[in-house]
Amino acid sequence: MRQFGGPAILLDRNDINTDEIIPAKYLTEITKIALRPHLLEDLLVDGKAFDHESEAMKKAKVVVARENFGCGSSREHAVWAFEVNDKDVIVASSFARIFRQNMFNCGILAVELKPEEIDQLFAMKGDMTISINLEKNLLLAETAGEKKEFSFEMNSFDRELVGAGGWLAYADSKY
């Protein structure tokens, strides 16, 4: 199975919506790669514009936020915007249904931790790396001084989709 994990970026927000992830004006693009420069372009954190072009953002492979991640529109562009920026794990305390489904349909990971566990991630100091062990359902977060491990649950069908490389490949072989 594919390996997931790497440097993490933490976004201290609930309800990050699809319009913030990829504004509607870019929905006229018909290739995924064209979305690359615009990921999280309209995100507000603490009421201020988020620097979506920072070094930390470029390096990150994992994104951590709080609850109801990906609410709003059904645009899979929101998932692709992460995908084409090489971010293939999102960790949050909950996800909007369509966004979560779109993640697994693309064969990438939406990992749910409990709100208290997300708090613990936010409390860790310094640059963070997160690795995911899919066999054991474990998430390991590491900073220079600290190491924390959390287990998470994963729906068995979602896991199959990740293994199959997404829903289209799965459905094509089966139906």
């Binding site: 645009r75 369509i98 489904q101 779109n102 349909n105 693309c106 997404g166 289209l168």
Partner: peptide
């Protein structure tokens, strides 16, 4: 229900 593009592709192609 609203769905994303991959679900739409499978819907168009396989009806599920």
């Amino acid at each position: 229900a609203g769905i994303g593009t991959t679900d739409l592709e499978v819907g168009i192609y396989k009806g599920v």
